[in-house]
Design a protein around this nucleic acid. Structure first.
Length: 397
RNA sequence: GGCGGGAUACUCAAGCGGUCAACGAGGGCAGACUGUAAAUCUGCUGGCUAUGCCUACGGGGGUUCGAAUCCCUCUCCCGCCA
């Protein structure tokens, strides 16, 4: 939270989604001195999807844009290739330049849902890194000691656990910090996991005789599993461009404990509205949260529609209003359909074994009749509804 | 450079010549319950139209009727000492 009252007022639109500003004093001085600050945000497109956790920072950036500041977006085409060479940390894979390019393209598109892209200053960090000589790299490594590096939590943990730490990884924060020098950032945005890296940026700028950047640290959002930070590669992320139905469903699966956080961080619900909702039934609050999240990226109508659809399917246990239609596969010689093939054909099972398990587990229904025989040959007239679990439906035509 | 330890399914981790498609935990999926979730309980969690066959225990080779288990070798990782 922001402690200084003047600062809180100046940054009112972001207040809810800023965790810490270090140091507040400096930011206040910068704001008083200059009408427009250079606000840096670096992205490492480690996946193809921008999720609502990334969205928190992007919205902060957008609000700074709206306040008249300059958004400086660093495309980490060089830093993204650093990753975690051991491959242990799935959230930090080493990427090839080709993968980086492909991911960047989709990121730009998705970020335009949030940022005013016409006014964004976009810089690739290959701009200054690609021609750096080894001597210059050595110069950069001179600026930090191994002990200082070890202050970073993930390094320290891995050190104690005797897990490998590649020298390559030490360069990461120096690169990120050097980006700040190169774009003369006034402010850098990042999640709490970036605290260390943001500080390195300050240090490098000071060493270069520049006014150091201020760190605007935003909260980190846990994924829908409620424990790990949101990340596409951990499978707990809600993507900006996911279908409204999926966004709503995933939002409803967020734990009660986490829901207040989601309300504040990923919806546009007003503060007092959130208060009221949280005082009421958790179910209604979560429905409101999910609807607001859908509304943010797909419009208010979509939010309301998905809410209605959710109640229909999960509360009243009715079939969804729209069931995807799937053409029947080729029948057996006698004109019947083997249930296992139907499941595989609809994409509900990836192997015969999986289909068999689903059936034996009692999770498969045809027109709401539980199918318990995996050897069953069914006669289909067309129009039957195949269902697996509570969410997967297909109308066989 | 020397010495020692290790590499097992999505992850962690047992197994140390047959009864191993491989204990257990986590995760995931399905079922019951329910307010969506959580918690709890139950089942499943390599492939194959299957009482059998195939592929799997870091890579390659060998011993054996039979190897995840023994031997050789390669690759990678970790520790200690230099």
């Amino acid at each position: 939270m922001i402690h200084d009252s003047e600062l809180r007022e100046r940054l009112a639109p972001l207040a809810r989604t800023v965790e810490t500003i270090v140091p507040e004093r400096e930011l206040l001085e910068k704001l008083r001195a200059k009408p427009s600050l250079r606000c840096k945000f670096g992205i490492d497109p480690t996946s193809t999807t921008v999720h609502i956790g990334n969205g928190i920072q992007l919205w902060n950036l957008r609000r700074l844009q709206d306040l008249g500041h300059t958004a400086v977006l660093i495309l980490g085409d060089y830093t993204a290739t650093v990753g975690d060479p051991s491959g242990k940390d799935k959230t930090r894979p080493m990427l090839t330049p080709e993968q980086v390019e492909a991911n960047l393209a989709t990121w730009m598109e998705q970020m335009s849902l949030i940022l005013d892209m016409d006014k964004v200053e976009i810089r690739r960090n290959s701009e200054w890194f690609k021609d750096m000589s080894f001597l210059e790299v050595l110069e950069l490594t001179n600026r930090m000691t191994v002990q200082q590096m070890m202050e970073r939590d993930s390094f320290e943990t891995r050190w104690t656990n005797h897990e490998p730490i590649s020298v390559r990884e030490f360069l990461y924060c120096l690169m990120q910090g050097w980006d700040s020098v190169m774009v003369e950032a006034d402010v850098e945005l990042g999640g709490t996991d970036q605290t260390f890296n943001l500080t390195v940026g300050r240090r490098l700028m000071e060493q270069e005789g520049m006014a150091p950047q201020v760190s605007l640290i935003g909260p980190l959002l846990e994924g829908t599993d409620g424990s790990e930070k949101m990340s596409k590669s951990l499978g707990n992320a809600i993507g900006l461009t996911d279908a409204p139905k999926d966004v709503f469903g995933m939002a409803m699966r967020v734990s009660d404990e986490l829901m207040p956080k989601y309300m504040r961080l990923v919806t546009d619900l007003a503060d007092d509205e959130i208060e009221t909702l949280l005082a009421g039934s958790p179910m209604d609050a979560k429905l409101a949260m999910a609807a607001a999240l859908v509304a943010r990226y797909h419009g208010a109508d979509a939010g309301a529609a998905e809410r209605e659809e959710f109640l229909r399917v999960f509360r009243r246990h009715e079939a969804p209003s729209e069931i995807p239609e799937v053409a029947r596969p080729d029948p057996e010689d006698d004109g019947s359909f083997w249930i296992v093939n139907l499941l595989k054909h609809c994409g509900f099972a990836s192997s015969t074994g999986e289909a068999k398990r689903l059936i034996q587990g009692g999770g498969v229904r045809l027109d709401e009749t539980v199918q318990s025989d995996w050897q069953a040959r069914l006669t289909l007239d067309g129009g039957e509804v195949l269902r697996v679990g509570r969410r997967k439906y297909a109308r066989l035509i």
